[in-house]
C-alpha cells in the first residue's frame, strides 16, 4: 500500500494521488498529518509538494515535527520506503531522514520550469531501469530548492552513489543548474537507498495530456524497484 501524507498547505496531493493510483490502482491511501499510526501493509510513504504550514520558520520545518512524521520516521527506521517530492524533500531533510538542507534559490526567485536531469545514483534497480532511454526532463517549481550540505556529506553522497538526480549540463558557469545547488543536486537518497527526496515533480509529467511522460518513467522505476525486493 502507498500512503500519501497531507499537511495543511500541501498543494500537490491531488495530482500525486492520480499518478500513484495509476501505478497501484486501489492501493493508495491519504493520511492526515495529525494521524499517528500508518496503515499496516504500508510499503511506500509519499510526501507531496506544496507549502506545508505556509513555509513558516523554514520550508518543511513544522511539518517535519508533526505526529504523522514520527510514524514516517519509524517506518524509515524499519527499512520502509519513503519518497519526498519538492516540499516533501524539504520535510525529509528537516526531519533528519535525508542529509543536507534546501535553502533559498541562488537567484532568490521562484523557478517554474522544465529541466534536464541525469540519474547519478539511488536504488540499483531504479538506476538500471532508467539507464535506457533519453535523459529525463521534469518540471520544477520551487523557491527553496538550493541543496546545501557539509563537504564531508557531499563526498559521502558522491562516493556512495546517493545522488538520485543532478541538473543536467550544470558544469558551464552554472548553466543548467537553476537554483545553485551544490554539485547540481536535484535529489538524494538515504544510506540504505529507501528514503528518496527530489525537487522535480514526476507527478506533473505523467498523464498523456501533460505532454511529457518522464515522470511516469521515474515513478514506474521506483515502484518496480520496490516490487523487485
Amino acid at each position: 500500500m502507498i500512503v500519501l501524507v497531507q499537511f495543511p498547505g500541501t498543494t500537490c496531493d491531488r495530482e500525486t494521488l492520480a499518478a500513484l493510483e495509476d501505478l497501484r490502482p486501489g492501493r493508495v491511501r491519504l493520511h492526515w498529518h495529525q494521524d499517528c499510526d500508518l496503515p499496516p501493509q504500508t510499503e511506500l510513504v509519499v510526501l507531496p509538494g506544496g507549502f506545508s504550514y505556509g513555509d513558516y520558520l523554514r520550508a518543511g520545518a513544522l511539518a517535519a515535527r508533526s505526529p504523522a512524521m514520527q510514524a514516517v520516521a519509524a517506518h524509515a527506521r524499519r527499512g520502509g520506503w519513503v519518497l519526498g517530492i519538492c516540499n516533501g524533500f524539504q520535510v525529509l531533510t528537516e526531519a533528519g531522514l535525508l542529509p543536507g538542507a534546501l535553502v533559498r534559490n541562488r537567484d532568490r526567485q521562484f523557478i517554474c520550469d522544465t529541466v534536464g536531469l541525469d540519474v547519478a545514483g539511488g536504488p540499483a534497480a531504479m538506476m538500471a531501469a532508467l539507464a535506457s532511454g533519453p535523459p529525463l526532463r521534469l518540471p520544477i517549481a520551487h523557491r527553496e530548492g538550493c541543496y546545501v550540505a557539509a563537504p564531508a556529506v557531499l563526498e559521502q553522497l558522491l562516493g556512495d552513489q546517493r545522488i538520485l538526480l543532478r541538473y543536467r549540463d550544470a558544469g558551464q558557469a552554472g548553466a543548467g543548474n537553476p537554483n545553485g545547488s551544490m554539485q547540481a543536486i536535484a535529489g538524494v537518497c538515504s544510506a540504505n537507498r529507501r528514503v528518496l527526496g527530489l525537487m522535480p515533480h514526476p507527478e506533473r509529467a505523467f498523464a498523456g495530456w501533460h505532454g511529457n511522460g518522464d515522470g511516469k518513467r521515474w515513478l514506474q522505476a521506483l515502484v518496480q524497484a520496490i516490487d523487485s525486493l
Binding site: 523554514r58 520545518a61 515535527r65 528537516e94 538542507a101 535553502v103 546545501v148 550540505a149 557539509a150
Partner: peptide, 9 residues
C-alpha cells in the same frame, strides 16, 4: 536544537 534553528544552514 529541536526546531528553531537548522543545524546545517
Amino acid at each position: 536544537q529541536t526546531l528553531l534553528v537548522h543545524p546545517v544552514t
